[in-house]
Amino acid sequence: MAPAPPKQLLPLLLFILVSFTCIWLFSLTASNRSARIQTQQLQIATQTPGPNFTFIVKLLTFNRLSSLSRCLNSLSKANYDAGDAVHLHVYIDHFPLDSRNDSAELDGKLSVSRQIVDFVDGFDWKFGEKLVHYRTTNAGLQAQWLEAWWPSSDHEFAFVVEDDLEVSPLYYRFLKAVILNYYYNASNFSPSIYGASLQRPRFVPGKHGNKMQLDGENQIFLYELVGTWGQL
């Protein structure tokens, strides 16, 4: 018969046993969570939006050539699914006409506008059609937003982005997954979901306001947010 372990070793053995049990339970939970996430991804990947699905990038710009170049390059380097047509519409606002501007200042503004138009015209967009809208008068940013998109069907989706932003290479696949899962998937469809924003949500905790009820099963949740940094 083996001798009983010394009393000073009992706490150590108990600690090792509890630690091993916690690690095993954590590994089991992580594997189950990974399986659920993979299952969700497979369900999204097998859905198709249909032949009428149209995705248009609406790029709003004015007089910032370097920012516009960075934004367009990030859009062109993004990952687009084979067979999907992604159209690009660029809206270039005109500079305000002011009678107080002298000829040198006016020539400078015209030169900047010409550089932007030439750059956009020569930019290679191989994922769909490219349309360039150049205004003959100044509209302002608000009008640029309001007049950028006139949907032609319930299957047309517009992604509005300003020229000072740089998108992630995965932005399109994320937005497409949102569309497939919350618009074309009847089990998740809700008329209260108007769009999706790539802007990071900001939470302001306080004593007042509606309480958010979350369960332990979902990895994501819907949150109302007015976002202008990459808006679907």
Rank of each mutant, 00 (worst) to 15 (best):
R64G: 01
G230C: 05
I37N: 04
L131H: 14
Y171D: 00
F189Q: 09
S152E: 13
L42C: 08
A30Q: 10
I193Y: 14
L225T: 06
W145T: 04
L106N: 10
V18T: 05
F15N: 05
L180R: 14
L59T: 01
A196G: 02
F55C: 00
Q231I: 05
Y172K: 15
G50H: 05
W150C: 05
W229L: 03
T228I: 10
G50Y: 07
H155M: 04
L65D: 00
K211Y: 09
F20M: 10
G108E: 05
E162A: 09
V160D: 00
K211W: 07
P201R: 11
T61L: 04
V161Q: 13
L17Y: 08
K77G: 13
Y184P: 05
Q8W: 14
F159D: 07
W229E: 00
D107N: 06
F20E: 08
R173K: 14
R202P: 00
D84P: 04
N52G: 02
I193T: 07
A2K: 15
Q144N: 09
G128H: 02
L88R: 00
H208Y: 15
V117G: 04
K77Y: 12
V226N: 09
L42D: 09
Y183D: 11
S31G: 01
E217W: 03
S66W: 01
T48I: 03
V178G: 07
T137G: 03
P11C: 09
D98H: 12
W229C: 01
Y194R: 15
